[in-house]
């Protein structure tokens, strides 16, 4: 039954992939296909990584209403963009070489997440909630600092920061894809290998320990993978806060299983499908450009509200 559902999800992903690549294909076919394939690769990588990371993060936090974005990844990303524009100026920022910029951004995001996780989980993984709260507060602090710095910028520089702060799938540099792809595929494969342990960890700290699971080590390994996946995805296209919430909760609903070996690929496929379908609809059907992230955030926000209200009842 579960296999059928995974097959159904992979068929859905395949259909949207073909539609995205083949819709109204004109000459020169090779060039158009290669351009579409680059964008498709970015959509698949980001969607899959964010869906996968959210399932892992929710298991570690024992809460299905939160996303890794809550600990301030998006705020740190915006802060980094603001600081770069403030220091280098609008022209200097635009002239930055994509590869070193991507490496520095990813490195900063991974370092910040690792420092947050390691410092707060030193006493053991029961401190996950304190870690989340600290991340939320740090996010507020970084947003405040970014807001302050943005007031100093020239209007043209402010526009550069604004553009860099919204996730964009249309302007991904193709040179970044192999590196980002390799990092994300390795992180996703490792998280899938962690699946049987994550199943036990989902029972809670004490129960998992009584079953002989090295709980703290498992949670730290999971959170390290989350930090890599979210950092690479954010540095590649920008922050997408609620996509993971959509993908993970649809995966729980559609697969109806507790097994991470199923949930992880399901959330990854759903995340990728949402992005491909959304981008396809906006670019080809509605003729609009680069507002996908806004719609994903809007739909994710609505789902979040629905989940919170349903839980309250």
């Amino acid at each position: 039954m579960v296999r059928h559902r995974l097959l159904f999800l992979s068929l859905g992903l395949g259909c949207f992939t073909l539609l995205f690549l083949g819709w109204h294909l004109r000459t020169p076919v090779g060039l158009i296909l290669s351009l579409r394939a680059e964008k498709l690769a970015a959509l698949v990588l980001v969607g899959a990584a964010v869906g996968n990371a959210t399932v892992l993060f929710q298991t570690a936090a024992q809460n299905r209403l939160i996303t890794p974005g809550i600990v301030g990844f998006d705020a740190l990303f915006v802060f980094l963009q603001t600081m770069l524009v403030l220091i280098l100026g609008g022209a200097g920022y635009s002239g930055l070489s994509p590869l070193p910029k991507f490496a520095v951004e990813t490195g900063c995001l991974v370092l910040a997440a690792t420092a947050l996780f390691a410092a707060l989980l030193r006493k053991g993984a029961e401190d996950v909630l304190r870690m989340i709260l600290t991340g939320v507060i740090l996010g507020v602090l970084l947003r405040g600092l970014s807001g302050f710095a943005q007031r100093i910028l020239e209007p043209s520089e402010f526009a550069v920061v604004q553009q860099a702060s919204i996730a964009s799938f249309g302007a991904v540099d193709a040179r970044l894809l192999p590196i980002a792809g390799a990092a994300l595929v390795i992180a996703m494969a490792l998280s899938w290998r962690l699946s049987p342990r994550l199943d036990v960890a989902a029972l809670g700290r004490t129960k998992a320990q009584t079953l002989g699971l090295p709980f703290d080590r498992t949670i730290l390994a999971g959170l390290s993978l989350v930090s890599v996946m979210v950092a690479v995805a954010t540095a590649l296209v920008g922050p997408v806060t609620f996509l993971g919430l959509l993908a993970a909760n649809l995966a729980y609903r559609l697969t109806d299983t507790h097994r991470h070996a199923v949930l992880i690929p399901a959330a990854a496929m759903i995340g990728a499908t949402i992005l491909i379908a959304g981008q396809f609809a906006f670019e080809r059907v509605l003729g609009l450009q680069s507002s996908l992230s806004v719609v994903v955030e809007f739909a994710g926000g609505l789902l979040f509200l629905a989940l919170v209200l349903r839980r309250d009842r």
Binding site: L203, G204, K207, T210
Partner: peptide
């Protein structure tokens, strides 16, 4: 084997 008092489980 230990059975604790807490029987809350997040997973379905």
């Amino acid at each position: 084997a230990l059975l604790t008092q807490d029987q809350g489980v997040t997973a379905r």
